[in-house]
């Protein structure tokens, strides 16, 4: 008995996993029976499992998952490749930092513009604030903004406004507006309607109902999701350079394509440090907001 009651201090053994640990009390009331199984529900649960398993199997070959053995057989190649990254080359660190700051600046403007435009668009896509014939079109427009990746927008804007950071700002702006407006409207739809009614009863105009009744309620959440999007945008902005939309991405892909792995490693470290710093900073700020 004693050995069964405590696991602490025992050496690990597989046998223990199957051993009875506490003797289970037997049911004493003879009249209790197990309720009949709900076969419909059981079938439904297994159906879900079957569908999930099927989806994974179905995607196996198209996703070339059978190549996973190469991870082992080509391990030598990868080790060789990785070796290039072991000794980062910080010779041009000033240039990297400069480009990294530019990347953050792209994210700042992209997010800032998105926040400004998401305030009206978020309210217009809230079903408790606007009639459906405004809500539906605005929501669909926001869906479109969100559905198209920043990189795709960046390619479009590079064509429209030329190579450089401004194309990156515009790409982040449009995509982030789609996301923020949706998140903003979700918190607007969850507000307590009573204070709004209180403001309405004073004879305030519609805009004042929103400014005094709605905004104070949603502001902490809005700040929180905006900061979170800023974090995400710093990460996104580091790859916008791939299509020529400025920032550290451009430098990074040039060095990778030029097989200059030592430089690439240094750039990656700069990116990691910056993204981590942004995350920590915005996390602290978000805590203040709520």
């Amino acid at each position: 008995m004693g050995a069964r009651t405590s696991y602490a201090g025992r050496p690990f053994s597989f046998r223990y996993l199957w051993q009875e640990r506490y003797p289970v009390t037997q049911a004493t009331h003879q009249q209790v029976t197990l309720p009949p199984r709900d076969w419909g529900r059981t079938f439904y649960h297994w159906l879900i499992v079957a569908v999930v398993v099927f989806v994974f199997l179905w995607s196996w070959a198209p996703a070339e998952m059978y190549l996973f053995v190469n991870l082992y057989t080509d391990a030598g190649n990868m080790a060789e490749y990785a070796e290039g990254f072991i000794h980062p080359n910080f010779e041009e660190i000033d240039y990297y930092i400069e480009e990294m700051i530019l990347t953050v600046e792209i994210a700042v403007w992209g997010t800032g513009l998105a926040v400004l435009s998401s305030i009206p668009l978020g309210i217009l896509s809230s079903s408790n604030m606007a009639p459906f014939w405004i809500v539906q079109p605005v929501r669909r427009l926001m869906d479109t903004f969100r559905a198209i990746n920043e990189l795709v927008f960046a390619v479009l804007f590079v064509v429209a406004v030329g190579l450089g950071p401004f194309a990156g700002v515009m790409a982040l702006f449009i995509h982030t507006t789609g996301t923020l407006a949706k998140l903003y409207s979700e918190s607007v739809e969850a507000i307590d309607p009573h204070p709004v009614e209180g403001i309405r009863a004073t004879g305030a105009i519609r805009l004042q109902e929103i400014v005094f009744g709605v905004i104070p309620q949603v502001l902490p959440l809005w700040i929180s999701v905006s900061l979170y999007r800023f974090e995400a945008n710093v990460r996104s902005a580091t790859v916008l350079g791939l299509v020529g939309a400025g920032g550290i991405g451009q430098v990074m892909f040039e060095s990778i394509r030029g097989f200059q792995y030592a430089q690439s490693a240094a750039i990656l470290i700069v990116v990691i440090v910056t993204v981590t710093m942004t995350d920590i900073l915005s996390q602290q700020l978000r805590k203040l907001a709520i």
Binding site: H194, P195, E197, G198, I199, R200, A201, T202, G203, A204, I205, F212, G213, P216, Q217, L219, P220
Partner: peptide, 20 residues
Amino acid sequence: RQIRRDIGVIFQQFNLVGRM
């Protein structure tokens, strides 16, 4: 909206804006 100015309303749940 004009007439509401002249009507004050007190609600059971106060209807103040809590964060202000």
